[in-house]
Simulated scan of single mutants.
Amino acid sequence: MPYDRYVAICKPLHYGTLLGSTTCVHMAAAAWGSGFINVLLHTAITFSLPLCQGNALDQFFREIPQILKLSCSHSYLREVGLLMVSASLVFRCFVFILVSYLQIFRAVLRIPSEQEWHKAFATCLPHLAVASLYISTAMFAHLKPPSISTPSLDLVVSFLYSVVPPAVNPLIYSMRNKELKDAVWKRVHWTLFP
């Protein structure tokens, strides 16, 4: 999505050639392929662990760090390896998004019309907000120190990064709609000042 925005704003006359069907297929294949490799590594390493503390977890879905806690082998190196693979994939994605948006903001700030600035920022900021929300909550979930890890905190954090970003995604994107924005502001005003 950031590359689409980048090409649409920074190189609008080349949009058809830069974002043809081949490019879209390659980008989708890269995203799906990296996700599949990440999941395959996590699954293979997790199934190779001997579980000696039972197989019951206090979670509503199975998180890799929670399963690693049930292992009776020393899984520290495996956990660090999985974390490094996942972090490298997320970091590359984050850098790509960040560089794309920096290029977009640099191009937009050169536009003399403030109305055009508003259009460009209204197009880009919702995606940036959703991506930042997801990445920050997922990073906190997987990079928090084990000393503060409790079952209830793990449950809340897992809920935050797996449910909240997809739930607020439609809300963030729909805030570009003027009628919805007006209705939300009316409701907030009515709630605060009855």
Score class of each variant (00 low, 15 high):
L18Q: 12
F36L: 15
C24Q: 10
G35V: 02
I9L: 14
Y76D: 14
I97C: 13
P194M: 00
S132L: 10
I67G: 05
T46R: 04
T46A: 15
Q53G: 07
Y15E: 13
I172V: 15
A138F: 07
H74R: 00
P166M: 05
A30Y: 03
I37N: 06
V130Q: 02
T191P: 00
V95H: 03
C93G: 15
A107F: 01
V157S: 10
Y6D: 10
F105D: 04
H189Q: 10
G81H: 02
S88A: 15
A8W: 07
Q53P: 00
M84F: 10
V163L: 13
L153M: 08
H127R: 05
S152W: 06
H189M: 08
P126W: 03
L77Y: 02
N38H: 06
V99D: 14
T150V: 04
I67C: 11
P166A: 08
S158M: 14
V108S: 09
Q103Y: 04
P165R: 02
V163C: 15
S158A: 15
S136Y: 03
D4V: 11
H142K: 13
V39F: 08
Y173T: 06
I97W: 06
H118T: 12
C93D: 09
H26M: 15
D4A: 12
P194D: 03
W185K: 11
L89W: 03
L102W: 01
S75R: 00
D182N: 11
L41I: 08
A30D: 06
H118R: 13
A87V: 08
S71W: 00
F105C: 11
L83I: 01
F94R: 04
A107R: 06
S147W: 02
A120F: 01
F61V: 03
I135C: 15
A122Q: 07
A30K: 01
C52S: 08
V85C: 14
S136E: 07
V164H: 04
P146K: 05
V85M: 12
S136C: 13
